[in-house]
């Protein structure tokens, strides 16, 4: 087996792994402000992708659909916060776990009823003919995933570090009460984090759809892997999810090639179990994940 083919597969896998990283980053955003995550995050990915596809079907240009889809994702994030998270958090209960799962099931059924159960192609202006660079073939489509993920995560991290709003976000993550005493509304910070989380979920959907097609179940495997990535990397390191996401993506491609295509899902679960057994805070994490 020539080394170049191994490198080829590892790189293709790693680029796809960035989608896991992006969805995992969506978990991190809300965990930081509220110690809660949306267990129906995959349905946000899927519904946003369907919504964007509908806009494309209406004849809108891809470059108009992209921002519209992201705004739609932000709105869905706010719906999740309002409907499934806020009341539970106000009562200091863990009810958000069940409520976000239920809301996800609701989104799933709604999507099946509105758009049907079939997988549909997602047209994109980005070409999929591969080109040769540094001895491996990559497609512009794969590259667009990488550029989109890294650009948006980089932008959010930059805003978090450089703006006062971002520092307020961090302050509420560290100490909600002390943040309130500074005049920072914890409620609005949590809303913002859910809106951002919905936005990155929508971006994941729009970026991955041309490769995977759009269907009600398109995100169920993705989100499971993203969850593994978030746990393995830790729930507070954006840099960590990028590294772990790419690593897992590469590992999956290699496993499915060398062991058998049925083994594609194995590395994610093995990493998850290993992380929980050996280092529950995650490789890059500081905060321990609470057992609920």
């Amino acid at each position: 087996m020539p080394a170049s083919i191994v490198a080829q597969m590892a790189i293709s896998g790693a680029l796809m792994g960035l989608v896991y990283a992006l969805i995992a980053y969506g978990f991190q955003l809300t965990y930081a402000t509220s110690k809660s995550i949306n267990f129906g995050q995959g349905e946000l990915v899927m519904v946003s992708a369907f919504f964007s596809l509908t806009l494309l079907d209406l004849g809108l240009s891809y470059w108009l659909v992209l921002p519209a889809g992201l705004l739609f994702g932000a709105a869905l994030g706010l719906v999740v916060e309002r409907a499934a998270v806020r009341l539970a958090l106000e009562q200091k209960s863990e009810g958000w776990i069940l409520l976000t799962i239920i809301l996800g099931l609701f989104f799933f059924s709604a999507a099946e009823n509105i758009w049907g159960r079939d997988d549909r192609p997602f047209p994109t202006p980005i070409p999929s003919e591969s080109f040769h660079v540094f001895g491996v073939d990559v497609t512009p489509l794969e590259l667009s995933v990488a550029v989109g993920v890294l650009a948006v995560m980089g932008l959010i991290e930059l805003l978090k570090r450089k703006t006062l709003l971002g520092k307020a976000f961090e302050a509420v993550s560290v100490d909600r009460d002390a943040g309130e005493l500074m005049g920072i509304s914890a409620k609005r910070t949590v809303m913002l984090s859910y809106a951002l989380s919905g936005t990155v979920a929508a971006l994941a959907g729009i970026l991955v759809s041309p490769i995977t097609t759009v269907g009600p179940t398109m995100a169920s495997a993705l989100v499971l892997k993203a969850f593994s990535v978030a746990v393995v990397a830790g729930l507070d390191s954006g840099f960590g999810v990028v590294l772990v996401g790419m690593f897992l993506g590469a590992l999956e491609t290699l496993a499915s090639f060398y062991v058998g295509s049925g083994w594609r899902e194995a590395p994610g679960l093995v990493l998850l179990i290993l992380a929980l057994a050996v280092r529950p805070t995650g490789v890059f994490g500081k905060a321990a994940i609470r057992k609920v």
Binding site: L159, T163, L164, L165, K167, A168, E170, A171, V174, D175, D177, A178, G179, L181, M182, G183, I184
Partner: peptide, 25 residues
């Protein structure tokens, strides 16, 4: 005291004035 331990001293001070400062730049 409840200072924000993961932020630097100056950021802590800036957050003290959060209510009357511009949010972005």
């Amino acid at each position: 005291r409840k200072v924000f331990g993961t932020l630097c001293v100056e950021d802590n001070l800036l957050l003290g004035a959060y209510g009357r400062l511009p949010r972005f730049f």
